[in-house]
Structure formats: C-alpha cells, structure tokens
Design a protein around this nucleic acid. Structure first.
Lengths: 136, 136
DNA sequence: CGGGATCCTGGTTGATACTG
DNA sequence: CAGTATCAACCAGGATCCCG
C-alpha cells in the first residue's frame, strides 16, 4: 500500500490513494455518524460523544483524528479553562452531506425490514433446505 | 413485508437493530462496492470478484452472505454444470443506489485532495521540521 | 464455477487509568 | 473538558486445501 517516500508533494497527489480506502474512511460506521452530527455547525467533543451514542471515547478520538487528517474536519482549540475544542466540516465534507443523510434516512426507514429479513434468513438456514429455487 | 406471521418477526421488528449496525453493514468498505457493482443487473460471483478488485474470495463470500441475510441481495442458484449463481439487488437496496453512487463519485472527485490533506497533516504533525523556522 | 472449512496473524476495539 | 497511554481480547481478513 504505502510507498514510503520523503518527497510526498505532487506524486502522491497525482496518484492519490485507493478508492476503496477513501470510501472506507469516509463511510466507516462511526465516520458517517460523526460527519452527520457535525454537519449543523461547530460541535464540541462531548456533544459528539453524546450524539454518536455507542462510541467509546477512544474510538471517537481516533475517528476524529483520521477525519481531520483526511481533510474532512477542522479542529479548533480554544485555550480557555476548561479547554474547549470545536469540530467543523470542511467544504469538501459538506458536499458529502446529502449522500450521508440519504444513507442514514434509508437505514432508519428500513431497519425494521432488515431485522425481519435477518430473522427469516436465520430461520430458513437453520432448519430446512430451501426449495424455492427457480428451475430454468 | 407481505408476510408478517410469526411473533418472532414482530418482536424483532419492534425493536429492530441499532441504527449504527445497519449503517455499518450497508456502508462497509466492501458492501458499497458490491452493491454498486450489482446495481446494473444480475451479477455472477466471478464478475463481482473482478469488479470489486482487491477483495479476497473469502471476504466476498462473507459480505455476500451478510448482504443476503440483511435482505439487500437475492441469491439465485442455477443447478447447471458448471454451477451458476447470480446476485441481484432487492428493491430495498435499489433505493440506496443514488446515495451510494453519490458517495463513490465524491470519493473519486476528492481522492487527490484527501491524499494531499494527509501529506500536509503528516508533515505538520510529525513536527520535527517547520518550514518557516530554521532547523537547529 | 462457487463456494465451505480451517488455521493463523495483526489491526481494531473496549476497559482502565492518568493528565494538562 | 478533552484528551493520551497501555494492555488484553477479539475478530476481520489472508492463505490454503477441499468439495459438489
């Protein structure tokens, strides 16, 4: 994957990175939730922690770092007491918003159907052999 | 959806499954590629293997099974010699198509920018050298 | 052709504790 | 508040062999 090179300037930019890797970072389980949660404006760390719900502190940090590294989030530190850190989407990331919310809305619409599909699948697979196959 | 007969399905449907889990299955690295590749019509196993490119036989099988279990893919076995298996999107999965291709197109448009953002981030973060300050 | 079964590795994750 | 550090467990994923 990585061709370790000290002059990373234009060559990497030209070659970019595997598409599947970009997809993986941007569409990861947590990334989507984070990106959607941060879409409405600058969001603080603990707000994200509550919004994403289910994510651990560590995973949140790791994902935020990766998204920042990929240029999707900007991290702003206010040197106050107590400390305050805000995350915002970059313009690049904002272009993603419609696709992401589309995905999330789809998931909400169909989670029940998916749960049922699983139940049916598990039920069918466990006991009997399927005989509803077409015969050409 | 036409049949909701068992009480099992009602219970499961009622509490469904965590949204983040649905997202994870549907937006996984391989899932997206598979769903996009299967969108244009019935696709055979080896076609997918070539289309997704980078996926191993094992991972392809595993992901296909999971997508089938979630009710996103239908698997049709033709008892011919040699065997022939076709995968198609369910109507549920077809609704996802625009969001998915939106995502992929976004990734294609911005992979160069992402690669550069990474280079900048790594350069800045590893921090041994600053460009505006002379090295000791 | 389209898988299934098994073994094995290393990256990902949660838990826990500590900090500026 | 917003992290970092460390360790152990887990499981995604590759390699390999086999089968209907």
């Amino acid at each position: 994957m990585s061709r370790s090179n000290t002059r990373v300037s234009q060559e990497v930019t030209a070659q970019a990175c595997p598409l599947v890797e970009v997809i993986d970072h941007v569409a990861g389980k947590w990334s989507i939730s984070i990106l959607v949660a941060a879409a409405h404006g600058p969001v603080r760390f603990t707000e994200l922690e509550r919004a994403v719900e289910g994510i651990s502190r560590r995973m949140l940090t790791l994902n935020l770092r990766r998204l920042e590294r990929d240029g999707l989030l900007t991290r702003t530190v206010y040197p106050t007491v107590p400390p305050k850190v805000e995350y915002s989407l970059t313009s690049m990331a904002q272009e993603l918003h419609s696709s992401l919310t589309g995905l999330v809305e789809w998931a909400e619409r169909h989670r029940a159907a998916i749960a049922e599909a699983r139940a049916v699948y598990d039920n069918t697979a466990s006991g009997a052999t399927r005989e509803d196959e077409p015969h050409p």
